[in-house]
């Protein structure tokens, strides 16, 4: 049975030694294993791009908690991806300061350029588009975050330029972008 097989995978057979080391560090700074949950999800996501059901089961097993409980945590947070995402996840701020300074036009330009809406991924699996609450760059609004990078003072043209630059960089296989 598929499900049984999935839950019985031993965490040490599934998680890489690097993932285990990073999760162990998080466990060591908390009082309970469970308290490392969110950081553990982030560790695995950083290495694998998203949290699959299998990853979720394995992390829960490793933290000695139920998968259902960890799923409750994972789905609570918008920065944990429970579905596959593109290589670049665009987090466009849709909160009030960005709303006042041209968010809608920036969104329209991105949607038109990539031909996807919120929650969707481009066919080449390069971009996923998500909204984000205030990114803390309200004095430089509108703002978006791609990977770890914040892009500020956006205009529709500038947003498309940034995305085009990433598209070009990716066609040129050798250039890796720091995320």
């Amino acid at each position: 049975m598929e499900i049984i097989k999935t839950i019985t995978v031993h965490p040490k057979d599934y998680l890489t030694s690097q993932e285990l080391a990073e999760i162990d560090h998080e466990i060591s700074i908390m009082e309970t294993r469970e308290a490392a949950g969110i950081e553990a999800l982030k560790v695995v996501q950083a290495h694998r791009g998203w949290i699959s059901d299998e990853s979720l089961h394995v992390i829960a097993t490793y933290l000695r908690m139920s998968s259902a409980e960890l799923e409750g945590v994972a789905t609570f947070y918008n920065l944990i991806y429970r579905q596959p995402v593109g290589k670049y996840v665009i987090h466009l701020c849709d909160s009030v300061s960005c709303h006042l300074t041209g968010y809608q036009q920036v969104l329209n330009a991105i949607v038109q350029h990539l031909n996807i809406g919120y929650g969707q991924t481009t066919e080449d699996n390069l971009f996923t588009l998500l909204s984000n609450v205030c990114l803390g760059g309200c004095d430089k609004a509108p703002v978006m975050m791609i990977g770890k990078q914040h892009y500020e003072h956006l205009t529709p043209e500038k947003a498309v330029e940034i995305i085009t630059a990433l598209q070009n960089q990716n066609q040129n296989e050798n250039v890796e972008v720091e995320l």
């Binding site: 469970e34 969110i38 933290l63 947070y77 918008n78 920065l79 984000n132």
Partner: peptide, 20 residues
Amino acid sequence: TSAGRYICGEETALINALEG
């Protein structure tokens, strides 16, 4: 480091978040 959600800033929600 957290993973989003405004409510995590409310101090008792924050404590729950820290407890996993």
